[in-house]
Amino acid sequence: MKIRVLIVEDEPEFMRRFSNAVLADPELSLTGAVSTGAAAMALLGAQPPDVLLLDLGLPDMDGTEVIRYVALHHSACDVLVVTMFGDDRHVIAALEAGATGYLLKDAGADRIATSIHELHAGGSPISPGIARRILARMRTATTQPRDESPRDAVLTPRETELLRLTAKGLSFDAIGQLLEISPHTVVAHVKKIYRKLAVHSRGEAVYEANQMGLL
């Protein structure tokens, strides 16, 4: 069965580029290509995709809102965020909202298709800078344990070790050798870490809301 892909991108040039990359791959099917968050949410209900290719800078809303909506209503759908440069801050925000992958905008057609396949197969990319930031986020959670924050949001020692090694600039191959797992398992771990990051950030939000008396 083909992987259904929805593209949300307001810039026509890139929308064409992404659409062509998806259409060129026989294993992928394009369910739609829209330029606003509202249209994306409408289409998500009509034709649920497997992978959402999302630009963060949308004209009608922040891309992270779309991610949050997807995570809440279509949790089976993977979100692949498109960024201009390796902008860690925005990537982290997207991951916390529920994205599980990110892609550089200038990636070639092959790279785009490969990334969609990898993400759907259960693996996520991670750069040392991103790993370092996630470690910092999670560390504050473990040093200040809160009852409200969900238990599964806490990283396992192995996941922490993986992040630590990634942050040190080690390659997936090297990490796989050190942890005695295959490079595929490494990227699968990364996806799990991303999900935990999203749960953790939601837990934080719930905790903050509780503190402020909103819930």
Partner: peptide, 11 residues
């Protein structure tokens, strides 16, 4: 430097 070079190589 490790992170910077790691990011570079990752890309």
């Amino acid at each position: 430097l490790r992170t910077a070079l790691g990011d570079f190589l990752f890309r």
